[in-house]
Design a protein around this nucleic acid. Sequence first.
DNA 1: TTTAGGG
DNA 2: CCCTAAA
Length: 575
Amino acid sequence: METVVSMEVNEEAKVEDGIAKETGSEPVSLKHISDPDPDPEPDPVVYKLVRVDGEGRLVPATDEEVLVVEDLLEDEKPEHCAAECEQPIECIKTEGCSLQKNHVQSSEGISSVQLDAAVDLGKKIIQPEEIPCQMASASAGNSISQPMSAVGCPGSEGGLVENWSSRTDLATTGKPDFSKLKGEICLDNLTVKELQETFRATFGRETFVKDKRWLKRRISMGLTNSCDFSTTAFMIKDNEVLKKDKKENRKKSAVYKDLVVGVASETAGSPTNGLNRLADSNPNFDDRKTESLLLEHDSVREDPSLEQRTAKRVRKPTKRYIEEMSEEESRGSSGRLVSVVKSFEHSQSCSKACTMPVQNVRLAGRPMVTRQDSLGGSGVQVPYVSRVRKGRPRENFMPFMIAAASENDNHHLERKEVELEKYVELKRMDSFEDNSDDNMGSVPASSGGMRRKHHRPWSLTEVVKLVEGVARYGAGRWSEIKRLAFASYSYRTSVDLKDKWRNLLRASFSQLPAEKGMHNARKHASIPIPAPILLRVRELAEMQAQVPANFSSSKFTGQSGGSDRSVHETRSGYL
DNA sequence: TTTAGGG
DNA sequence: CCCTAAA
């Protein structure tokens, strides 16, 4: 049984044996991850991705595994969000808890998925909101001196950490009955009383809190926070937690079932860390499939309710989806987009896995849209439209190669990031004031887009510009208009302008008279173009002799007066 | 490459 | 929007 677990390794923990931090014995990779902050303050939490081999030993995960897991991770997020850390699929994290204490930090446990957290290796304590919060509450509950009713979220890590230490102590001395923990996943089914018991088992002390949710959270967090691979002595197998003699198992560490996510590909090979010992003892790297199978299996049989949850679980947006999102994001003009963005936000704030989504977007989003590589239809489940345009050989777009592809155009990486930053803002940008989409279309489709261009509804401003452009430069000089009036709208090609104009023309000549009959046609298809604009379009068309015979036919006799006036104005204004 | 038109 | 024939 192999599982991938993410270990949250506290730097301090690594040196628990007395090795001073300064010894430089810490793996570079880790350092890189966890040391962006000179702050002596404890708690550089680092997540490492490891795999549990059949014997319960941990081995560093390979890059491939990391990738795999990342995927899973992605999949979990939404659920995580919805289920509020109570997923069927558990994520076990370990971490060195106490820094000042060199003695055994033996608290371990299972945690509900904190996938997100795992993602953010770059930061010390990442997701500001929930995790810290939970941690805080968990720790608060652990320190004897603290009133456990304190569920508040102390925004500071300091107190938090301290609490951890004490908690750790407790855990060590309290000898919690972990057998009770096996069903962490089933917490939901437990009664308050049971939860309280579990709580006691977990933290070694009583609780009088009756809030189920609180308890559950507490418990899961407590378990989560207390994992320590390097010192753990538990094994969890087939839904059971087996306790082993700590002393004899110093090296063995725990086996956690189910999947856990983490993202430190550097894990493999980093020396001087508890993990390595494990790795050494068991360099087994095969059987990757088993992992997922197991995973599924476990999650399914864990608990019926879990199953349901699984079913309910909202599908996480695929990479492709995200990709599309990112594209849309930059244009910020569709209602759908907005909603999506919001959901994104939601997931972020909810799971605090901000980095993950962002990363994904960053990578996946690489493919920029140009006229040539456009997105299929309305972005519906189209796996990917391979539309190789003439004269522009494109690499095939492999959904699963996004990352790789994105690396090719580093040039645009920054831009993308910028866009990402705009991401949040855009969500609330007015949908029809799409000035934000400027300069962004002409990205070399090196990313292998080849998808159909997204339908980008013409905004009012665009239409106006177009009309003005036509008025100024004359219909037909699309390239000119494009260049001069649409310089900022790189995604509108001269052809687009032409097409749009054609449509405007059509509209301008058919709308007024047909207003009634057109009803059923479909007025809502796109933003209704204000009559004044249509009027002007018509004027322009007339004065430029563009009015197709069939259009100019009958109607607009009554409009001529106004038309004329407008025309004159127009002329005087632009000519 | 840009236009014009059909699809 | 896409595709192409023409220019």
